Amino acid sequence: MDLNAVRTFVAVAETGQFQKAALDLSLTQQAVSKRIGALEDALGVRLFTRTARGAGLTIDGQAFLPHARALLQAEERAVASVRPGSRALRVDVLGRRLSTAGLLRDFHRAHPGIALDVVTLFDADAAIAAVRAGTIDATFRAVTMPGRQLPDDIRATLVFDEALQLCVGPAHEFAAAPAVTLARLAGRRIWMPGNAPGTEWRAYYDDLAAAFGLTIDTIGPDFGVEALLDTLADSATLASFFGQRTPLVWPTGHDLRRIPLHDPTPVYPHSLLWRGDNPHPGLIALRDHLDALPPNHPDTETWRPSWAQRPAPPR
């Protein structure tokens, strides 16, 4: 349907006159009449009755008017979805409760005028493909996984290294420890059922386990964080890892403990990835916001896998 003709129809309906609609649209009265005639031919009905006083809507015209207005509103929304500065910035995070989602919340508080859509894609492959396709503007991920090079059109910069903590229940042998070394965890069961094969976080924890002789158990269905915390609270042997900045809430009776790890402190490297030719002003603001964050340096010696040591490419 010719939206210019629909726009002309709405203008005539609202003014009640072809001449006034022509002035509002910067058209000749003849052009307005031609557009309305073409629309009536396309619909197969008369939309107006012409009188000496102007133009009145027919019954069909009255029925068509709300739909015509909806068409024009849909057109405006469609244009706004890709208009620079109008389309919401779409950013992927691994989980809405993880630390990178917290970074986005802080960004939104600092820049409330920037529309923001937060999505959660499953793994780095899906996220990078979405960045390249333009369905999202950026993603927070750990890069790079072993054996994978980032595509040439993808840029990445390290945002921060998040220290890991051990989470145990009150009956666990380390429940009262102020801190635990990785060496003391050798042979203990670290339960992480959400470590799906082929993901960047599975690659990270596989390397961590190999480097320090840890037993990371991924067996069992992943019923989510709440179910994991319930199990930890009742176990004297199970433990799990969580990022230091990951907010966790549990019932008071659980009495769970979050214990720092040191000598060295394992850190999870969070990077921001985006397509180099993406001009979205919100993306520029997000990168500037992240660049301005205070330096993140854990107080102790740190560890991260060799594949995550590569410095970020220049911006």
Rank of each mutant, 00 (worst) to 15 (best):
V6F: 03
S26A: 12
S33C: 01
R35M: 04
I36V: 11
I36M: 02
E40M: 05
T51P: 11
A52K: 11
L65C: 03
A68R: 06
R69M: 13
E75H: 09
E75N: 09
R77G: 02
S81Y: 10
P84Y: 07
A88V: 14
A101S: 13
L103M: 11
L104T: 12
R105P: 10
P112A: 08
D117I: 12
A124E: 13
V131L: 07
A133T: 14
A138N: 05
R141L: 09
R141M: 11
A156G: 14
F160P: 12
A179E: 13
M192I: 15
P193V: 08
E200T: 15
A203K: 08
A203Q: 15
Y205E: 15
Y205S: 01
A210N: 08
I219Q: 15
F223P: 08
L229H: 10
L232S: 03
A233P: 15
A239T: 10
W250K: 06
G253T: 11
H254R: 07
H254E: 05
L256R: 02
R258F: 13
I259P: 04
I259M: 01
P260K: 02
L261I: 15
D263T: 09
P269N: 07
S271M: 03
L273R: 03
L273P: 12
R275T: 13
N278K: 06
H280V: 10
D288L: 00
H297I: 10
E301Q: 09
W303R: 08
R304Y: 14
Q309D: 13
A312L: 05
